[in-house]
């Protein structure tokens, strides 16, 4: 995966986007008629039919599909049922909050994983090492929303250290970023630890150690470089997963990102918003992949063709 050229990767992306569009259409079509969500509680059957016709929901599936593909190709994704406005800005305005939260989650994970991973490698097979693996696995084994609500009750309500929910300041980011970061930190810690240990047995490390270079220095100099590529791979996969996948965390903390938007769009069958959100996320995922590939080449010159 790390050897492909950016152009080839871009070309491969066209069929992927097509398949994504097909999957989205089929699923949203199968979920049925969204008209129920478009009318008030006391509307009559007559009102509903008028609305269905106005949105073109009474057309056969192939007409709807052709119109859908036509919209995609002309870059006109249509109108959000839920908001009654153009769907594209509805999705785009969520991106800053989503990027902030994704970055926050990744930074928390790195800040936790880097020192604990190094520490665990230095004190390998000791009690502290064992304790660290136990705690990190625990972080991964707990359901996300449970962790989130517990954090709110402890740090928000009981200790009153940070705001409970919402967005707008750095303090608001802390709890949701912690919720997202702890799960990923577990995997990253383990990866850093094992990458460091792997390097320990190498000849040049033994040579260095024999020369009297302190172990911490060796670890930082050589071990981290060894951990960099797998850590990068793992981080980029997680970044992709977080972009639209923090649905639960965003709901718990009422964080106004793509995740909450997408949950609501799915519930209300807001076709246009689901389409664009999935496309935007797919394109961001591609960008992350391309960036990761470029970073590989920077880090390891052997990968340059």
């Amino acid at each position: 995966m790390s050897g492909r050229s950016p152009l080839k990767a871009l070309l491969q992306f066209v069929p992927v986007l097509y398949i994504v569009s097909l999957i989205v259409f089929v699923l949203v079509y199968l979920t049925g008629d969204p008209s129920a969500l478009l009318i008030p509680e006391d509307a009559s059957e007559e009102d509903r039919l008028v609305l269905v016709a106005a949105w073109g929901l009474d057309r056969p599936w192939y007409v709807q599909y052709l119109r859908y593909m036509g919209n995609i190709l002309t870059g006109d994704f249509g109108v959000s049922y839920r908001y009654g406005t153009d769907a594209l800005p509805v999705v785009l305005e969520r991106i800053p909050a989503t990027l902030t939260l994704t970055a926050g989650g990744l930074i928390v994970a790195i800040l936790i994983a880097l020192p604990t991973g190094i520490f665990a490698a230095l004190k390998r097979n000791s009690m502290p090492d064992f304790a660290i693996s136990a705690v990190t696995i625990l972080g991964k084994a707990m359901p996300n929303f449970w962790v989130g609500i517990m954090l709110i009750l402890v740090f928000g309500v009981w200790l009153r250290l940070v705001p409970v929910s919402g967005s707008g300041s750095f303090a608001h980011l802390i709890l949701p970023a912690l919720t997202l970061g702890t799960g990923f930190a577990a995997e990253l810690t383990k990866l850093i630890r094992s990458s460091l240990l792997e390097i320990m047995g190498q000849d040049y490390i033994r040579t260095a150690r024999a020369k009297g270079v302190p172990e911490i220095f060796i670890i930082l100099r050589h071990g981290l470089r060894n951990a960099l590529i797998p850590a990068l791979t793992m981080t980029s996969l997680h970044a992709i997963a977080l972009l639209g996948g923090a649905l639960v965390t965003e709901t718990v903390f009422s964080w106004p990102g793509l995740g909450q938007l997408v949950v609501q769009a799915v519930y209300t069958k807001d076709m246009a918003v689901i389409q664009i959100a999935v496309f935007v996320i797919t394109i961001m995922a591609l960008t992350i992949n391309l960036t990761t590939d470029a970073l590989y080449r920077l880090i390891d010159p052997r990968l340059r063709h």
Binding site: I149, I152, L153, G156, V157, V164, S165, G166, T251, V252, F253, S254
Partner: peptide, 11 residues
Amino acid sequence: SIPETTTRVAE
């Protein structure tokens, strides 16, 4: 807008 009840009460 705070959909989660626990969060709303906590606020």
